[in-house]
Write a protein that binds this DNA or RNA. Sequence first.
DNA 1: GTCTATACTGCGATAGAC
DNA 2: GTCTATCGCAGTATAGAC
Lengths: 197, 197
Amino acid sequence: MIASSAMSVRRLQIREIVLNSALYLFSQKGYFSTSIPDIVCHSGVSTGSIYHHFADKQDIARALYDRHVTQMEVMFDDIEQQHGQVEVRCREIILALFELTEKEPMVMAYMLRTRHQEFMPDVAPVCSSRPFQHMRDVVLKGMNEGEIRQMDVMVATVCVFGGALEFIQFHLDGILEKPLSECFDELWRHVWASVKA
Amino acid sequence: MIASSAMSVRRLQIREIVLNSALYLFSQKGYFSTSIPDIVCHSGVSTGSIYHHFADKQDIARALYDRHVTQMEVMFDDIEQQHGQVEVRCREIILALFELTEKEPMVMAYMLRTRHQEFMPDVAPVCSSRPFQHMRDVVLKGMNEGEIRQMDVMVATVCVFGGALEFIQFHLDGILEKPLSECFDELWRHVWASVKA
DNA sequence: GTCTATACTGCGATAGAC
DNA sequence: GTCTATCGCAGTATAGAC
């Protein structure tokens, strides 16, 4: 029992090592320009071992995607737990995304800048992913409860979060001189002004 | 002279045929999932002929990129010629992008959704491309002339154009039920309200 | 300039010893 | 479960006839 539990811990460790190397390489060079030998070399895990833990290359990409969709869902759920007001929720979501971008830029690069559908045929478009659905739902709630002006839900969602997401892309491209955190207040003020009831 | 001119017309024709097939395939399946045989098959131009007109696969992608960067620059220059007021210029730029998206979705898909740096090492990030610089400059002019409130230029640019670009992505993902043109007025009203002086 | 046939490379995936 | 060695193949690019 203890042995099997230790084994499965070890099993998870190897998976994590491979996933972290894949995250680095995929976010740096992209999925197609990263070969299995690249992952072997960077992770120190052998080809055979990688294929023991993952079905194929695509399966690595999928596990990575799932891991970080979950990470973001947890993040958003926490915010929902802690804050009831829609204005605050939206603000905290953008703040959390900015913080994640600065702390774990590879995660954001892989999640936002990758065309996952190009190599995972059955994945939904980013904007149908659960984290994005969450953003849409917050905005919808804001409109139903009168915090946000009545308008098309997609237009409102894009007004609230579109600028921030674009901003994150710029930061990942390295063309912003200032850190994201310094731009947050100014961005948020204008964004919220454009939709608040 | 006439012969050589006719030759070069023919030369350009073949290039255009190949580029148009590449545009279709790249925007549909992505650069890496599109093989030279795919392009041969779709364009009806033989492998040898393709390699006579282009140095390699990357060169096709680059020619395509240049062609449409130019197309967008021309579009934006026309707007600049016809309209002096910054508010109108910004509005017309977004309108032009929406129209291009509906008329030539493959062009927008290739330009906006492709990570060109993944296969063209020396290309600048999208946001440093000339069309994007143009948007930034219009916003800057608006701030200098008092049409747009004083703030960080990138924040303002993102407030004005970020939502529209995000919206276009959603449309390309096929998750918007309405056509872009129907959302334009509402989007524009809120966007401009968030930055106007 | 355009074609067909093919050479070459590098990758994804597997086999099989330990 | 992990490793090394290797197979088979897809895909880029070239050679060379026409």
